[in-house]
Write a protein that binds this DNA or RNA. Structure first.
Lengths: 129, 129
DNA sequence: CAGCATCCGGGTGGATACTG
DNA sequence: CAGTATCCACCCGGATGCTG
């Protein structure tokens, strides 16, 4: 393993408006990460995302895309064709976000079993009924 | 900057139980990150966390600590003294989580202005009333 | 001190129906 | 196709009061 008690990164600086929490407020919701990662692969149109994500309502897809666009992470391009077509694409800023997300993903993959085990152990110890 | 459209990390693997979202479900809530980072500095007791965090109710502190403990990220040590004293400490697993959190924090610090600007620009363009 | 129990309001997100 | 508009259920989290 890597991080020990002593080589812990930096201090993170929080308490009184914490930047990490700020990101999580934007991306910690139910769908943002999924969308960002999908758009990280390639441009998608609305219906593609809707089908790809499975489980998302078009309401939530709309709202999430709007929020991401608002924050400059995604661009929305509408073509005045018929039927209409709207493409969503990561901005440069949005693509930089893929880096921390990837790190988080790697952590998750590396430790998901560990967490599951801890949880089951804990639950079994607490509520054996 | 670094990440371009082509050197995008790995594929992240999602759709159908996505590990990233799994982490965010555990740590994307309002207080977990704050607590983890504080405990990353040193062991804290309940009341210390309560004071340090400012704004958290003891209900939420309790619930969040319990969830973190359940997932094996934090250990809880109670001393049968009077008055009672309970120490919370990051586990080894919990400390490894500091790494992705730090990366996320650095991203946040590097781009918070950018995001703020994008948002204001967007809002000004949409609702100038 | 370190909680637990209870009540309760607001926001998140799902389902459904309708439109340019 | 790509949304918008409504209604509504749930649950997260705050406030308060009580205990070992």
């Amino acid at each position: 393993m890597s991080a020990t008690h002593t080589d812990v990164p930096k201090t993170l600086e929080l308490i009184d408006d914490c930047p990490v929490r700020e990101v999580l407020d934007r991306v910690g919701d139910k769908w943002s990460v999924l969308i960002v990662v999908l758009l990280g692969r390639r441009t998608h149109r609305f219906s593609e995302l809707h089908r790809a994500i499975e489980g998302i309502s078009q309401r939530m897809l709309t709202l999430t895309l709007r929020a991401l666009t608002r924050d400059g992470l995604v661009t929305r391009t509408a073509y005045a064709t018929v039927p209409p077509r709207v493409d969503y694409e990561l901005t440069e800023l949005g693509r930089t976000l893929l880096v921390p997300l990837t790190v988080l993903d790697e952590w998750a993959n590396a430790h998901r079993d560990h967490i599951r085990a801890a949880r089951e152990h804990h639950d079994r110890a607490a509520a054996p009924r």
